[in-house]
Amino acid sequence: MISVLVCDDQALIRTGFATIIDAQPDLQVVGECGDGRAAVDMARRLNPDIVVMDVRMPVLDGIEATRLLAGAGVADPVKVLVVTTFNLDKYVYEALRAGASGFLLKDAPPQQLLQGIRTVASGAALLAPEVTRQLVGRYAARIRPAAPATETPLTPRELEVLRLIAEGLSNSEIAAELVLSPETVKTYVSRILTKLDLRDRVQAVVYAYRHGLAPS
């Protein structure tokens, strides 16, 4: 059973999410709240498997709440799936930098929300290739450092895979591009995450651009 904490300042949306989630045999809502501060407090008390987090909320916004729950240096990070009505690049980028494992829009169909929760809870990341491409296209110039990284623990092939991840390609697309099997690509992705001490491919995208390892 995957335990879920739902945080949204709009009661109607919060109740709707909770109803959809609780109807699933493998998902259980353990709490609901309407602001980021309450989300942090409840998450630390209830220890859910995943927090479904809105962005714009009173008291403490979803980005800062995510940073407190899943950001760098957090001793026992909680997986966060950001779900918002705002498809603005700055929210996507800031949410991912804060430690979120995924990003969805509220107008996504219910099945996509449920699958997103399961995906993030399993330890995988949820960032659709089209979202990655939009993020990269708008933010590459800001994310890219003044000088590229001079040292990396990655092999040339792993660097190739990382660059394709940063372009927003899925494992199957990377496999087709490099003429590899999907299983081999999955192994490369796992090695990249381990070597760079990253949690998921979402962090890999941010890492690639912040360290000058992504395509120009």
Rank of each mutant, 00 (worst) to 15 (best):
G62E: 07
P182D: 05
I117C: 05
D197S: 13
A98K: 12
V205C: 07
V120C: 03
V131E: 15
Q134A: 09
E167A: 04
R138E: 13
V202F: 01
D107S: 05
A121I: 08
Q115F: 01
R67D: 12
L126R: 12
A98S: 15
A146F: 01
T66Q: 06
V189I: 12
K79Y: 01
A128R: 15
D49M: 01
A18G: 10
S101W: 04
R138Q: 13
D41M: 06
V189H: 03
L96T: 08
V82K: 09
L114C: 08
P25A: 10
A204S: 08
A70K: 10
P129W: 02
I174P: 04
V205D: 07
A141E: 10
S3Q: 11
A124E: 13
K195G: 01
L96V: 05
A108M: 13
R138K: 14
F86T: 14
S3I: 02
I50N: 06
L114S: 07
A125S: 15
R210G: 12
A124C: 02
Q112N: 13
T84E: 07
D26V: 06
V83R: 11
K195E: 04
V4E: 05
D41Y: 00
L213K: 06
I50C: 04
R199A: 09
Q112V: 14
R44F: 01
T184I: 12
L178G: 10
V6I: 13
L178S: 09
D89V: 15
L159E: 14
L196N: 05
V51H: 07
K106C: 02
Y91D: 15
A124R: 14
C7R: 09
L104W: 07
D9Y: 00
T119E: 11
A108K: 11
R56L: 06
L88A: 11
V52F: 04
M57N: 10
